[in-house]
Design a binder for these strands. Structure first.
Lengths: 167, 167
DNA sequence: TCAATATAGTATGGAATCAAACTAATTGCA
DNA sequence: TGCAATTAGTTTGATTCCATACTATATTGA
């Protein structure tokens, strides 16, 4: 996503305000900080998953399948839940199937459909990674005290609910 | 990055805790919420920039160049500041050069180097997009009151500074 | 019933992104 | 000085991801 490392110097900020008068510098700089922090966190998760041969996209597919009672879902449904296009989901499933973590089955009711099922190996993979994931994430989130963490989560969600303002 | 739309149901959470006992559900769910919110915000920025034929990577290159006194920098320096590899930066510069928004010059002092300069068209592009960007982002960030916004930015940065815990 | 429309999934082509390998130029040290 | 190590930038090949277009199947409504 974005890893803009260097926040602007005060000199370049001055220059900026001269060129674009009336700019609320703190709004912009908070915005960039948020993006950068989020990107760092996401990259760290990537790195954790990579140690187990996974990437975020595929990881979330496994997690979504685990949530299902019969460990089964369809590509379209998975794409919706994961927030990616169907084309992207095809790619994830291809990769997961290649590694034997999920299997494709025909849907006998609707012959356009496939059923994607978490395989035994897929469940084992989850059982291998999940405890590490849970432990790391818990430790990480406890960097903040409970009230700060709640406020952070709530406020960020509030903010994100108004992304319609960015258009 | 990730857009996991569907947060787990309480039933699937129960199942989760059964399989992975001792899990701090709220830590995990806060973590996922943060990633999701950030992803939504980043996507919204993508969409805004796309309206002007830009993408985040290229956009940040233009912004970084604008910050320089002589509107000039080198690929390596830009890569460092943007937090991408040199190879990725080569791609950004190729694209920007193709569109005439930056130019490549030889560095006469060090013949391994190039100088990348923001072109007049590049500055015009910034002048076209920046006011919209500034206005949208300002409105967006003002969804939160000043104290909430400050706390959010600070706490998120604090959190991100401990990504070493995710490993 | 059957043609229009909608839906499921895949294929294609492109951009972003990285790691690793490569070339050319510079620097450092023996 | 001269060779080894470093640095700048690109190329290559891979993966992720999207938009668009395509195929096959299902649904709907006249």
């Amino acid at each position: 996503m974005l890893l803009l490392k260097e926040l602007p110097t005060s000199k370049s900020l001055e220059k900026f305000v001269t060129r674009y008068p009336g700019t609320d510098i703190s709004a912009i700089s908070d915005f960039v900080s948020i993006l950068r922090a989020a990107s760092d966190i996401s990259s760290a998760l990537d790195a954790l998953l990579a140690q187990h041969g996974l990437l975020q996209g595929r990881w979330w597919v496994l997690v979504l399948l685990m949530r299902q009672d019969d460990l089964t879902s369809s590509p379209s449904e998975l794409a919706d839940k994961a927030g990616v296009t169907k084309a992207t989901m095809t790619g994830f499933i291809d990769g997961l199937e290649r590694e034997g973590l999920v299997s494709r089955f025909m849907d006998t009711n609707d012959r356009r459909k496939f059923l994607i099922r978490l395989s035994v190996a897929g469940q084992q993979k989850l059982d291998e990674v999940m405890p590490v994931y849970v432990q790391c994430v818990t430790q990480f989130m406890n960097v903040l005290g409970k009230p700060e963490r709640n406020a952070l989560t709530t406020d960020l969600a509030t903010l994100a609910s108004r992304v319609d303002l960015i258009k």
